[in-house]
């Protein structure tokens, strides 16, 4: 029996919401980046579900692009984390309050 589309969309929404919770409640920048990766994965899952339901390859092509953006984002993001750690000796978002009013 084929998996219906709304199963994929439901799981995608759940994973995305979980990623949002993680980004909002965690203070470690590394964990925040990981949660962003999880949200990107949720979006990919929706793309794949639609691609399977419509028998169209465009969804899978888009997942390819999303993965490229995710890889670029992680490379720059982790370089930023290391640079911040060198400069301020912290990886906690609370300690980076220099722009806070």
């Amino acid at each position: 029996m084929v998996v219906p589309l709304h199963y994929y969309l439901g799981l995608s929404v759940a994973l995305f919401a979980l990623g949002v919770v993680g980004v909002l409640i965690r203070r470690n920048i590394l964990v925040i980046l990981m949660c962003i990766e999880m949200m990107l994965n949720a979006v990919n899952l929706a793309f794949i579900g639609f691609a399977d339901a419509f028998k169209a390859v465009d969804g899978q092509t888009f997942v390819f692009f999303v993965m490229t953006v995710a890889a670029a984002e992680v490379a720059v993001g982790l370089a930023l984390v290391v640079a911040i750690f060198r400069h301020r000796a912290t990886v906690y978002a609370d300690d980076l309050n220099i722009l806070k009013w």
Binding site: V3, Y8, L11, L30, L33, M34, E37, N41, N44, L45, I48, G49, A51, D52, Q60, V63, F64, M67, A70, A71, V74, A75, L78
Partner: peptide
């Protein structure tokens, strides 16, 4: 789940790029 949705290439890329490269970087 990608394999279940007939996206074999994307599943392989997921393991190689995400679980392999990105998580090793993390």
């Amino acid at each position: 789940l990608y394999l279940l949705a007939h996206a074999e290439f994307i599943a392989a890329i997921q393991i190689i790029v995400y679980a392999g490269a990105i998580m090793v970087l993390f």
